[in-house]
Design a protein around this nucleic acid. Structure first.
Lengths: 122, 122
DNA sequence: GAGACTGCTATCTTTTGGAAAGTAATATCC
DNA sequence: GGATATTACTTTCCAAAAGATAGCAGTCTC
């Protein structure tokens, strides 16, 4: 079996290889709404409406898409409580709590360096 | 002057606020090609062609766009050496070297956890 | 003069993003 | 009993962005 996406002596995956499934995962995670959604869920399980309010400006369509893709890849759990009105809760899986670190670092970096970025503008 | 994008006791910026300029920066950086480009430039200044080969599968149009946006925001320097054939070099600014950390962490996390992600798939 | 090299633009098509409105299944209000 | 509210979405439509492909300008080599 060909391992086109592995490289180097340690046989690791390589995001720089076009054919590596890493690319799809990076594409999913390196994305504004995913970064914000995972960050929001870091504070605990949340309902659709709460997430929508937290991620200011997200449309329900895009939020649904984002959450479903995160769920497909195993970063988020979706739990339905069959109450009325309908109650759905999203939470991070262990994997989700894992990426939360790097994503949080990126978000924080942006917040902390915005003033610098502003003055460095061309 | 209104500081709609600042929140909390420490008067920091907030990526969750729709109107905060943070959003634009997060959108620029939390993006597949930006993450890969900054990572490639971490190894030293590189020419357009070299970057194109490194970021397997990127089209020249998208690479140009990505580099120009990174340049506009002060993450990348573009230096033209008026030689023949034309010689253009891209390199990270100090700000660029700053984000390189968080972005590298994200890329590495993906590479290191791909197997887990694969088996966690729904 | 044919081709190669570099760093792009220009054009076209496909995909995605975002705004707005609609839906289902109750529950409660008046 | 009809109107309205709630939750979590779909659906539809349009605009913006991403991606594939081709071409160009300028010069050097063969």
């Amino acid at each position: 079996m060909a391992t086109t996406c592995r490289s180097g002596l340690h046989d690791r995956h390589d995001v720089y290889a076009a054919q590596c499934p890493c690319r799809d995962v990076l594409d999913l995670l390196a994305n504004k709404w995913s970064a914000l959604a995972v960050g929001a869920l870091e504070e605990g399980p949340q309902r659709f409406g709460a997430l929508q309010r937290r991620l200011e400006g997200v449309s329900p369509k895009v939020l649904t898409q984002t959450l479903r893709r995160l769920e497909e890849h195993g970063f988020v759990d979706r739990t339905i409580y069959p109450a009325v009105p309908l109650h759905v809760e999203y939470s991070l899986t262990e994997l989700g709590r894992g990426v939360a670190g790097p994503l949080s670092a990126l978000r924080s970096w942006v917040e902390e360096h915005l003033d610098q970025i502003h003055s460095a503008r061309a």
